[in-house]
Amino acid sequence: MITGRNLSLAFGNTPILRGANIDVPFGKLVAVCGPNGAGKSTVLSVLAGEQKHYQGDVYFGDDALANLTPRQLSRRRAVLEQSPSLSANFCVDELVRLSIPMELPPRDTDVMVRNILGQLGLSEFAKRRVDNLSGGQRHRAHLARVLAQVYANQTLFGAGYLFLDEPTASLDILHQIAVMKIARSAAQNGVGVLVVLHDLNLAAAFADDIVMVNGGKTVAAGSVGQVFQSKLLSQIYETPINVDKHSSGRLVIYPELQDLAG
């Protein structure tokens, strides 16, 4: 499990995190939610090892994050950035292979790449240049790359973590659901999944646990039912928000728009 305690970070004189706490267990999908500027992506970047000057404690199991080299860290977690980029004219197959460690035998690598491309519906694009794909396909290709990293490391070194920073931000509803299903499936395969999400309904539908961040602090953490309560959400987002139960049993979150009703 990843444990982050009392995480604080400032850029210059501007505090971004002020004592955030977070746990990411193996086999669970944890969604970090909160308003714009709450510090959601910064929490992810601290756990990913990108920030050197944070305060607080982060542990991957028994190992302190500060003691892990980039290579050791890459064996434990894979990260999909919000806007992944690629400068070279690689094809999809080459892109997916990029982050797979060399220790994985070539035959296993081939099988893994083929399976992941199939899972993401990219098999027919395997030999197409990434810059010739649509935005959604490109995003899925990068997701395939980080999934390959996670599963290759799981095969070689044991279960790891998958961090997704607003993975649905630029996608239509069909692809949003497809991406979240893949994240869910990774969690079911034993991966600890941390997703930064704006869409509370996606979080309600797919997450096991929610960490609600506001003003750089963790203001609530727990199961979907515990955190997604009308009063708490209305306070955090500073607007009236309703939480109802759908006939499927899932929570549905929507803002009150009384001004528009009449």
């Binding site: 990913a48 090892g49 990108e50 080299t69 980039p70 290579r71 860290l73 890459s74 064996r75 977690r77 894979a78 990260v79 950035e81 992944p84 980029s85 690629l86 400068s87 070279a88 690689f90 990029l98 982050s99 460690p101 060399m102 980080v146 990293q149």
Partner: peptide, 19 residues
């Protein structure tokens, strides 16, 4: 291999294990 990973940008290259 490191140069291939640099094509993803420095953040993603770091995420893939490069110092």
């Amino acid at each position: 291999r490191a140069l291939d990973l640099f094509q993803l940008g420095e953040r993603a290259a770091f995420h893939s294990g490069l110092a």
